[in-house]
């Protein structure tokens, strides 16, 4: 409506400037990614214009690089365990925020969200102090506890948003018909929250696979993938890093595509709370009087 409206008015110059600006910003956002991918095929190493001697050698070197794949495996284990912890405590936390009243509720809500916005090093540091005090050796366990704790916020935010839209009548019916809370939780609540839970799991997975600041303080002898890449960057840059980055990028793209297909199949209006715009308001604005 507003588009049609603004096209009737003499807005062409403004729209063109905005379009140019938008194109420039998109170029700024995507250019580094394009350069990164392009130079993963460059036989002459990273940098140097124009790229030439295009080759797949860096990918061959990468696939034979055992240290990288060990790190990938380690990061995968870590991310999956982080998902279990973050969902295992984040879902109850969302239920508690939605349904229970307890002293310190506001403080709790803010505290849970803090690791998402606080510099990662503060969370990493304070946890490493805890583990030193408790005499826990740094390794996979400390990483899992760190990532799990830092990412509870993601699970809580997504599931809480899902709960706000949930109609409690089904749960009520289930309880009235004699199911206990446990059965109702698994058969009614969780299936109804399928999408927010999967969305949260995907976000937690991606964030954990990319996490550096917290890992930096909690890592033992073995490297996570980002810290392995980080260690190599400090020694010098090779297109092998471009190659592994390209693969990570493709993997992330697949995750997003998977998410949107899943969402459009089951409930197109359910968003990822941390990333999506408020869809219902778009509808509201096109029909200012929903009663008729």
């Amino acid at each position: 409506m507003i588009l049609a409206d603004s096209q009737q008015r003499p807005t062409a110059p403004r729209a063109i400037w905005l379009l140019l600006h938008a194109s420039a910003v998109f170029a700024f956002l995507y250019l580094p990614i394009a350069v990164l991918i392009l130079y993963s095929f460059n036989g002459q190493g990273v940098g140097g214009f124009p790229p030439h001697h295009l080759t797949l050698d860096w990918y061959r070197i990468l696939f034979a690089d055992a240290a990288i794949w060990d790190a990938v495996l380690y990061s995968l284990k870590l991310a999956l365990a982080a998902i279990v912890i973050a969902l295992g405590f984040g879902i109850p936390a969302a239920l508690a925020l939605d349904r229970a009243n307890f002293p310190g509720k506001t403080v709790f809500r803010r505290l849970v969200l803090l690791p998402l916005i606080l510099p990662g090093i503060i969370t990493g540091l304070s946890l490493s102090m805890l583990f030193k005090l408790a005499d826990v050796r740094l390794g996979l366990l400390t990483l899992v506890l760190g990532h799990g704790t830092a990412l509870i916020s993601v699970a809580t935010t997504e599931v809480f948003a899902g709960l706000q839209k949930l109609d409690r009548a089904q749960e009520e019916a289930s309880l009235d018909l004699g199911a206990n809370y446990w059965q109702t939780f698994w058969r009614i609540t969780v299936p109804n929250l399928k999408l927010p839970i999967i969305g949260a799991a995907l976000l937690i997975f991606t964030l954990s696979m990319d996490e550096i600041a917290v890992s930096f303080f909690l890592i033992g002898r073995d490297n996570t993938l980002p810290l392995e890449i980080w260690g190599r960057l400090r020694r010098g840059i090779t297109p092998e890093i471009n190659a592994v980055s390209t693969i990570i990028f493709l993997f992330s793209l697949l995750t997003i595509v998977f998410w949107y297909r899943l969402r459009s199949q089951s409930a197109p209006d359910v968003g990822m709370e941390l990333l999506d715009p408020p869809h219902e308001n778009v509808n509201l604005s096109t029909n200012p009087n929903p009663a008729d």
């Binding site: 998109f26 956002l29 995507y30 250019l31 580094p32 990614i33 350069v35 990164l36 130079y39 990273v46 940098g47 140097g48 214009f49 991606t206 696979m209 990319d210 550096i212 980002p226 890449i229 980080w230 960057l233 840059i237 890093i241 471009n242 980055s245 990570i248 990028f249 992330s252 793209l253 995750t255 997003i256 949107y260 990333l275």
Partner: peptide, 27 residues
């Protein structure tokens, strides 16, 4: 969605990409 996609790309990878662009032998 095009605004969101870069958010899914590893932070480290994007910082690294700028390093390869800005270096003295860089792109």
């Amino acid at each position: 969605q095009m605004v969101i996609i870069p958010l899914w790309v590893s932070y480290l990878v994007r910082a690294y990409a700028w390093k390869t662009i800005l270096g003295s032998d860089g792109v």
